[in-house]
Nucleic acid binder design. Structure first.
Lengths: 129, 129
DNA sequence: GGTTGCCTTGACGCCGGTGTCAAGGCCTAG
DNA sequence: CTAGGCCTTGACACCGGCGTCAAGGCAACC
């Protein structure tokens, strides 16, 4: 499988695949032409990468998952190193959730306050020109 | 008030204040030396900016709030334009919250699955060297 | 006069995952 | 022979809010 086909099948671009290879995540053989030749298994790897990236993982975080897949596992997240990353990421996400929730409350409060002021009989706000 | 003092009082750096000025958010007069001279009111403006940035707003989003403050309002979020931005941001934040919540569920599920596999009598995972 | 500490503008670096363009090689079909 | 479609490496652009260094002016004190 050439790079264009893999890109299409994985729903991404050739540029992206070359980047993953540069980062040591994806492996490719070479044809006599110098064209990259991909094993069918790489499709799973690329999909795993894309899925993890979409979930907010960074390239470094993804390495153990790929290694886990390459070791012959059905899924990339069953190995100890992957589990560590999963735990860390879960804690991170919980942190973000907490912050976002606080921010949401603040926004809600400010919005309510602004609306209340606008609807009050005495309109106090002065707007820019 | 010179830039260093404002920076200290606002809890930020001179670089940051110059950047805000470059973005048209903060205003400064000039001494005969060419030194920036700040009005006391700018401290409030800078604090408003910092607070909004911390809440995830971008520079562009912040403009209406500053304009609102400059128009003489007690708070920057009572003007119509600010309210629009607040509404938009609230929706955005809700979107992020939804996504993060989904991701959290996925992480949780994958983590639980991995742990279950590890603790099962039949250890199926094969780990990388 | 020299040192210290403020100020000035200008400009590059970062982070991370791509888009995109350049310049060229390989292969196939007309 | 040529046109077109695949491939190659290399390298710059992006986004946003600064950090940080460079080179120099101004003010005040010893």
């Amino acid at each position: 499988m050439l790079i264009g086909e893999l890109a299409t099948r994985a729903g991404t671009s050739t540029r992206t695949l070359r980047y993953y290879e540069e980062q040591g995540l994806v492996r490719a053989g070479r044809d006599a032409n110098g064209y990259r030749q991909y094993d069918d298994a790489e499709l799973r790897v690329v999909r795993e990468i894309r899925s993890l990236l979409a979930a907010g993982f960074g390239i470094e975080d993804i390495r153990p998952f790929v290694a886990c897949l390459r070791a012959g596992n059905e899924s990339g997240h069953v190995c100890p190193d992957s589990v560590l990353v999963l735990r860390r990421k879960l804690a991170e996400v919980d942190g973000y959730l907490g912050q976002l929730t606080d921010i949401r409350h603040q926004l809600r409060a400010q919005l309510d306050e602004a609306v209340a002021l606008r609807e009050s009989p005495c309109r106090t706000q002065i707007c820019p020109p």
